[in-house]
């Protein structure tokens, strides 16, 4: 009983014709004879958060490294549409341009804040570095911006001259986020951003991330093995196993009605709190 009215299906609402921010196409990475990730393809639009889940060794970190331009894929393309509107294959760019993107329009939040922070300099300098790299040359402005961002990530302003070694793990991670977001990037890559943190600290960080993502309309790719993290942060989800994407879709659909045997196993293995 199909009504003529109902048959008029619009396959692509207006929003779908917007150009994507990031397009991955056939991204494959081999380490010699060992597979990192194989034939990964997706599109990411401004303001969208994509979660990538899978167990250790499933290739999700390799994929993230390829997407963020830190590891060149054996095959495939990663195309980014920059602020200027030009779509560029990031591995066809000269390294200087790629680095410029990484420190201006992108952010990269590492699992271990020690890898993403300069532990030997103050919190203020950690936040200010990206501004200085972007050409800021006014100390007062840089410090003001650092101070503002410390507050945003809920770190007391009087810690601005303290080194991150004196911070707790959760504070270090929040500082890393501030350091990445200070230049208002359009795309942020996160590798297990809540890994290694206490549950209560995780909740605070998730809340903060969610607020910042919404406030700045950030697009993000978040790699994690924590399904609770993606349920709260990610609009869409990709499930990886053995280097390949086995299932993808809306986050709640993939988690609540998983289709692939591996996803079902992953979801059923989580202890219900």
């Amino acid at each position: 009983m199909r009504t003529p009215e109902a048959a008029r299906v619009d396959p692509s609402p207006a929003t779908e014709t917007d150009p994507p921010l990031l397009t991955a196409d056939g991204v494959t990475r081999w380490y010699g004879h060992r597979l990192g990730c194989r034939d990964v393809a997706f599109m990411l639009w401004p303001g969208e958060v994509l979660g990538i889940v899978g167990e250790s060794g499933s290739g999700k970190t390799t994929l993230l490294d390829c997407l963020s331009g830190r590891l060149s894929p054996t095959a495939g393309h990663v195309v980014y549409r920059g602020e200027d509107g030009d779509a560029v294959d990031i591995f066809a760019l000269p390294e200087s341009r790629r680095r410029l993107l990484q420190r201006t329009e992108w952010g990269i939040v590492r699992q271990n804040p020690r890898d993403g922070l300069r532990m030997g300099v103050s919190a203020g300098a950690n936040i200010g570095e990206r501004l200085m790299a972007a050409g800021w040359r006014h100390y007062g402005d840089i410090r003001g911006s650092a101070d503002e961002w410390l507050q945003r990530v809920e770190i007391d302003g009087d810690r601005i001259d303290d080194r991150p070694v004196t911070f707790s793990g959760g504070m270090q991670q929040r500082l890393q986020i501030a350091r990445n977001l200070v230049t208002r990037p359009r795309l942020v890559f996160m590798d297990e951003p809540t890994g290694g943190l206490d549950v209560s600290v995780q909740a605070r960080l998730l809340d903060l991330l969610r607020g910042l993502v919404a406030e700045f309309g950030l697009a993000a790719v978040i790699v994690t093995h924590d399904l609770a993290v993606v349920r709260l942060l990610a609009h869409r989800l990709m499930v990886m196993q053995g280097g390949a994407v086995v299932e993808s879709g809306l986050t709640d659909q993939v988690l609540d009605d998983p289709q692939h045997p591996y996803t079902q196993l992953l979801v059923s293995s989580v202890l219900q709190a």
Binding site: E5, A6, A7, R8, V9, D10, P13, T15, E16, M43, W45, E48, H235, R236, S248, G249, L250
Partner: peptide, 11 residues
């Protein structure tokens, strides 16, 4: 317009 939820893209 009518959109088919069963086949719609996540976006």
């Amino acid at each position: 317009a009518m959109v088919d939820i069963a086949s719609a893209s996540p976006r």
